[in-house]
């Protein structure tokens, strides 16, 4: 057992959207609850809380995961990026911009998870076609059914911009 770890709370260090934080967490605290309830980062959503809807998707060390099924204490030392950490100042992340340009949402509840998932998808580099985008985004549900425009937004972000 590491120093600072009792059965009640454990001392961990997390880098969240670029800021290094030292935190005491109970072992049963999920990463999603830590982000939302303790750190006030409410962009990541608790949709189903069972890893089925993808609304809680964040990037841990650049890899997309379901934060609702992740215990915060197990992520000690990791770097977490949420929807709040994607923009550079006033400049939106290309995927955020693509979601706006393609009207890739209606109510917006699933959108932070969709965008974080899509950032992970682009980093993984396995998607080559719209069908592959659909398959590799199947862990993110959209109850409004904005899927066609979500696929279009991700497809746009995958291609180099011609007007740039």
């Amino acid at each position: 057992m590491l120093p600072g770890m009792g059965d009640d709370t454990c001392a961990i260090t997390l880098k969240v959207n670029g800021s290094t934080l030292r935190l005491q967490v109970a072992p049963w605290t999920t990463l999603l609850d830590l982000l939302r309830e303790r750190l006030g980062l409410t962009g990541s959503k608790k949709g189903c809380d069972h890893g089925q809807c993808g609304a809680c998707t964040v990037l841990v060390d650049g890899v997309r995961i379901n934060s609702c099924l992740s215990l915060a204490v197990m992520r000690d030392g990791a770097s977490v990026t949420t929807i709040e950490g994607l923009a550079e100042g006033d400049a939106l992340h290309p995927l955020q911009q693509a979601f706006i340009e393609n009207d890739a949402f209606q109510c917006g509840y699933c959108t932070p998870g969709q965008i974080c998932s899509a950032v992970g998808l682009l980093a993984e580099g396995h998607a080559r076609s719209d069908d592959q985008i659909r398959e590799l985004m199947s862990g993110n549900l959209c109850r409004c059914g904005a899927y066609p425009n979500i696929v279009a937004a991700i497809g746009q972000a995958m291609r180099p911009r011609r007007d740039a």
Partner: peptide, 9 residues
Amino acid sequence: GASPQLRNM
């Protein structure tokens, strides 16, 4: 099986 996020974990 599963989704990309789950397979990553």
